[in-house]
Simulated assay, not measured.
Amino acid sequence: MSEELKEGLDRRDFMIASIATVGASAVLAGNTGSAIAQDTAAGTAGGTVYTGDVIDGKKVVRTLDVNDLAPGQKHLLYFQGVQMPTGQHWHVSVTVARGANPGKRGVLTSGVHGDEMSSIHTVQTVMNQLDPAQMSGTVMAVTDVARPAIESMQRRWPNFGRGPDLVDTNRVWPGNENDITAPSRHAGLLFNRLLRPNADFAIDFHTGTTGFEVAAFNIAEMDIPEIKAMAELYPVGQIFDNPTYPNVLHNAFVAAGIPSFCPEIGAARHLDLEMISLFVEGTMNVLKHHGIVAGPMGRTGKDVSVFVGNSAFPILATAGGLVEHLVKLNDKVEAGQKVAIQRNSFGEVVAEYTSGVAGEITGQRSDAMSEPGNPLVFILFNKATQEGVETYPE
């Protein structure tokens, strides 16, 4: 890890404290989960551990070291995640392209939210373009991190341990294998045994949530040089220069000393092929930047107009009714500019919404109707002073 990245991480005290808290919880739970804790230590030290199971011709692992896999080949595996209420396991799909020659190890993740189809397709497309025989290094893809959420194509993990509950899997990282909730245990298993041990850098792909679409942008801490270098290799028009929440997956990587960022690819629940192509091109640029694949760079941020903002201004519905947007994604807006109106069932205008800042539209409600309190618009802008961790309505 470079000195620049170390300096960047030193500024993330709130994240380190968060990780320390998780570690303390694991110690307290140690007596009740000693078998899991011992297995984790043994698996990490001893390399790949196979369960002996085979699903659809693919071997199942509970711990993976990509260096144990044959070079110059693609490997399709399942990772054994947390148990279901039946005692069976949620198995996560893992594709490893191990190059013929040594080099950097990149990790690509998607499906942390279950309604984000374009993120999955982006990672699949990148992996399909890789030829391990021509690679120097390794790329590992995990495309369906939150399996139970993906099965119902919904954002959150349905957890029934203490009554019906929906858990945002991108608020529990790095997880805790001995925690009281299945999503946190699942995150802990993946992070400890699969993701962190095999990553020199990582990219966690997302989209907007159901009912809300976003522009093509990267969430990246631009004061960390190794992250900035990767984020600027994408031909997309916006960068959100903000750490966001401490317990999202890309921040768990950064807290562990692994440069990471988060691309956002349009709307949920469908494939935006035009936007996907931009992120495939950018991701291939990142792999070329790290020397994993050869060839000339594609388009980058230098080829488009990129707006960098450090905060997002939310506009929430104050009434119920049909939403009519007056601006589009990526449009520039001024403070006081009208951006949306809302009509009731009679067609009467019941609310008008204006921007409180000057910036660019980075997200809009895609569902045509809204009740009070729903986010209607997010505007990317630059805040003069940043204080603490910002939270955003969902």
Rank of each mutant, 00 (worst) to 15 (best):
G99W: 07
E394Q: 15
E7N: 13
V142R: 00
V286Q: 04
F346D: 00
S355H: 01
A255M: 05
D223A: 00
A41W: 06
A335D: 09
I341K: 01
T40P: 00
D68Q: 09
A29E: 01
N176I: 04
A229S: 14
G208M: 00
D241P: 05
P259G: 09
S305F: 05
K6R: 14
D200V: 11
P225W: 00
K58Y: 08
N192E: 15
T21K: 08
K58L: 13
G211T: 01
E116A: 02
A149K: 05
G301M: 02
P158F: 07
K104Y: 10
L195D: 07
K338C: 12
F313S: 14
R185M: 15
G81Y: 08
L329W: 02
S119P: 01
P314M: 12
G103T: 02
L233V: 12
E274G: 08
A340Y: 04
V49A: 14
M140L: 13
E360M: 11
M275A: 13
F212L: 14
T63H: 08
V280F: 03
V248S: 05
E348M: 12
N101Y: 07
T122Y: 03
E226H: 03
V357T: 12
V96S: 08
K288N: 01
F212A: 00
R155W: 10
F217C: 04
H290A: 10
V248K: 08
V389T: 14
Y392M: 14
G373R: 09
I227W: 06
F191G: 09
G8R: 07
V350M: 06
V306N: 07
T48Y: 02
I19T: 12
A312C: 06
V145R: 00
G8A: 15
A187R: 09
G282F: 07
G87A: 14
P174W: 03
R343F: 06
I16E: 10
D223V: 06
R185Y: 10
A45M: 01
A267R: 00
R185F: 10
T143G: 02
N176L: 03
H75P: 05
D367P: 02
A37C: 04
G295P: 11
S355T: 08
D272K: 09
E324S: 14
M369Q: 10
G103L: 03
L287T: 10
Q38H: 05
M369D: 12
L108H: 12
A312P: 04
